[in-house]
């Protein structure tokens, strides 16, 4: 079972290490982790995707809360949140494949952001599932390189996980 946790942390050296070390020491599995700025310069936001049952989730949340530099820990219910991931994918693009690739790109409302004689770079944004589906479809042409951000997530409506 996958869970998404949003963290507000102090923006200080060593904070990421503490979080990563906690996961490894307690044997929790991180699926993805993103870090980025908030609108307060001394706070950062992390989105961590963890795999585990309810007991694991509870321990993860409580242990994270014990870290002095962690200010807020919130589990984000997928049914009530929006999540987005961005991927850029360098895909092999032979002459005869180009139009099909462009069709896929347009169906996914993705973008082609670079074209060269033998490859293209495709940018896609969306839920993890959507990115995953895009990757699957592009695989037939040959994926040469891929960079994914991991997901960021936010609760719909008025609930705030703010810094």
């Amino acid at each position: 079972m996958k869970h998404t946790i949003a963290l507000i942390v102090e923006n200080k050296p060593g904070v990421l290490v503490r979080i990563a070390a906690l996961f490894s020491r307690r044997g929790f599995n991180i699926d993805s982790l993103t870090v980025g700025a908030t609108d307060k310069p001394d706070r950062a936001r992390m989105t961590i995707s963890v795999d585990g049952d309810e007991v694991v989730l509870e321990q993860v949340t409580k242990q994270l809360n014990k870290l002095i530099n962690v200010i807020r820990v919130s589990e984000l219910d997928p049914a009530e949140s929006v999540e987005r991931e961005l991927a850029i994918i360098k895909v092999a693009a032979k002459k005869e494949d180009r139009s099909e690739i462009m069709q896929i790109v347009s169906v996914f409302r993705a973008k082609i952001i670079d074209v060269s004689p033998r490859s293209m770079i495709v940018e896609v944004t969306g839920s993890e599932d959507k990115v995953e589906a895009m990757v699957r479809l592009l695989r037939q042409f040959g994926i040469k390189e891929m960079a994914r951000t991991g997901k960021v997530s936010m609760v719909r409506g008025s609930r705030i996980v703010g810094p």
């Binding site: 007991v55 509870e58 321990q59 409580k62 242990q63 809360n65 014990k66």
Partner: peptide
């Protein structure tokens, strides 16, 4: 006093 101990 440590919530993480409860249920561990």
């Amino acid at each position: 006093v440590d919530p993480a101990e409860i249920g561990k």
